[in-house]
């Protein structure tokens, strides 16, 4: 039992070190990678354009629900004029970065892990290496750069759509004056809140996409399965680890910034 615990602890620590090396190699391969921009565009397409519908839909419903719940709570105190502040602060500081990151993990992250896993499985990654192409620079680096760009944008879109959703449920359905709602939004949100929002989005983007890429890239290291089962196992691990890391990092960043 003690031996097992010790082994697991050692494995976790060496896994972390391996992950850090992986991210470092990918970042280090950026300057030497040819025609990187084209693949970054491809990455922005995967993480940005393809994930836009889910971001808009989830953002709208989050705002709608926040508006509804917030109204019923604030109405008891006769402060429904603060609805805009409640919706905007919860969206900008917490909901938009976290939920947008989770949605992007679910759509773009899982796809990335599965794609890299299959490329590992069908020897495409080894083929790259034998051609003299740095597989980290070719496959991973553009995805990380795209994440740096896309996550803040998706988070901002999520927040904007959510604010609109909150005004829909708050002012159209429940009768808070739209002017009161929007002026409350503008008065509540400060530069520091927006900064926190973008810091979170950027950190989540780099963390989740590197975790997903790491698991997919090393799908062959899966001990319990090979082939298609290994790809599915590594994709599952990628999504689970990224989701946990998003929530943990959210707590850490919030405690530092508040």
């Amino acid at each position: 039992m003690v031996g097992w615990l010790g082994r697991r602890a050692l494995e976790t620590v060496s896994g972390l070190g391996d992950f850090a090396l992986f991210v470092g190699r990918s970042a280090g391969a950026m300057p030497g990678s040819r025609r990187l921009l084209r693949r970054v565009v491809r990455g922005v397409y995967e993480q940005g354009v393809l994930c836009l519908p889910v971001i808009v839909i989830v953002g709208a419903f989050t705002g709608l629900v926040l508006g509804l719940q917030g109204y019923y709570v604030l109405n008891r105190f006769g402060s429904d004029g603060l609805l805009g502040a409640l919706v905007s602060l919860s969206l900008v500081r917490e909901m938009a970065p976290v939920l947008a990151a989770l949605m992007l993990v679910g759509q773009a992250g899982s796809a990335l892990a599965a794609e890299l896993g299959i490329q590992r499985n069908s020897e495409q990654i080894v083929a790259l290496e034998t051609m003299g192409v740095d597989s980290h620079g070719y496959l991973v680096a553009p995805r990380l750069l795209a994440a740096l760009l896309v996550f803040p944008m998706q988070t901002a879109l999520f927040a904007a759509v959510g604010l609109w959703g909150g005004s829909m449920s708050g002012s159209l359905l429940l009768g808070v004056d739209p002017g009161v709602y929007w002026s409350s939004v503008e008065r509540a949100v400060e530069a520091a809140d927006v900064r926190e929002c973008f810091i979170k989005a950027t950190v989540f983007g780099v963390l989740t996409m590197s975790i997903c890429a790491y698991h997919g890239f090393h799908a062959d290291r899966c001990r319990s399965a090979t082939g298609a089962r290994a790809v599915s196992a590594s994709t599952t691990r990628a999504v689970v680890h990224s989701s946990i890391v998003v929530l943990a990092a959210d707590y850490i960043i919030t405690s530092f910034l508040v």
Binding site: S33, R34, R35, S122, E123, Q124, A127, M131, V133, Y138
Partner: peptide
């Protein structure tokens, strides 16, 4: 490679051009 290791997200021409593009 035994199973060709072609990149299935790239067209035939892009596959052939890949080693030139990257090296």
């Amino acid at each position: 490679f035994q199973n060709n290791a072609l990149f299935d997200s790239l067209t035939a021409l892009e596959n052939v051009a890949l080693p030139l593009e990257q090296t």
